[in-house]
Simulated assay, not measured.
Amino acid sequence: MTSILILNGPNLNLLGTRQPEVYGRTTLADVEALCRAHGDTRGAKVAFMQSNSEGALIDAIHAAKGVHDGIILNAGAYTHTSIALMDAISSVELPVIELHLSNVHAREDFRHVSYIARVALGVICGFGAAGYPLAMDALMGHLAAGS
């Protein structure tokens, strides 16, 4: 069975109440339930973690090697600042999909820079919570192709 780690970074614990005009009203618990249900239909085991700490996210990426087949990462603002997360992804040699709820390319200029995209398999953004199952399908398709 495919095992996917879904990591969510800073402020994503506030989904549903934080800037609903940008991020919607779906809570992180709703996202987790959506991902688990989608995993059940696709035969994938899903592990889920959120942290506001860059170090905790790095530790989770390191711990994923040999445990999970791939990672979906919504690094929040760390996407635009964290060379350390980029290096962690490079170090574990697992496929990673970068994910954002909002379309970061339609927002402030600083959000157009992604250190994660440089080492990610691909980027999904702008589809709200629906982006999570899209990312799961993309990751599972990649893994099935043996790429």
Score class of each variant (00 low, 15 high):
L73A: 02
I61C: 00
N52F: 04
L57R: 01
I83H: 12
I71V: 15
H62D: 09
A77Y: 10
I58G: 05
G70L: 08
H62I: 13
G76M: 00
I71W: 02
I72Y: 05
D87K: 01
S53F: 02
N74H: 06
A64Y: 06
G70T: 09
A75C: 10
S51N: 02
L85I: 15
L57Q: 00
D59V: 09
A60N: 06
Y78Q: 11
M86Y: 08
I58S: 03
L73H: 02
S53V: 02
A88I: 04
A56D: 15
A88E: 02
S53C: 04
D69E: 14
N52D: 11
T81S: 13
A56R: 11
H62E: 09
A75T: 06
K65S: 13
I58N: 03
A84F: 02
A77I: 13
N74Q: 07
G66Q: 11
L57V: 03
G55P: 05
A75V: 09
S51G: 04
I61S: 00
A77E: 12
G76P: 04
T81Q: 10
G70P: 08
A63H: 11
A56G: 08
N74M: 06
S91H: 11
L73R: 02
E54G: 02
I71C: 05
H80G: 05
G66C: 13
N52R: 07
A77G: 15
A60G: 10
H62K: 12
I58E: 05
H62L: 13
D69H: 15
A75I: 13
H68Q: 12
S82P: 13
V92M: 12
S90R: 14
A60W: 04
D59R: 08
V67A: 14
A60R: 06
G76W: 00
I83T: 08
Y78E: 05
E93P: 06
E54L: 01
M86L: 11
K65W: 13
H62W: 14
V67I: 12
M86C: 13
K65Y: 12
A84K: 04
G55H: 06
A64D: 05
A77T: 13
L73K: 01
T79P: 09
Y78W: 15
A56H: 10
I89F: 05
M86S: 11
S91K: 14
I71M: 03
A56N: 14
V92A: 09
V67D: 15
V67R: 10
M86R: 15
H68P: 05
S82V: 12
L85N: 00
S91R: 12
N52K: 11
I61P: 01
I83V: 14
H80L: 08
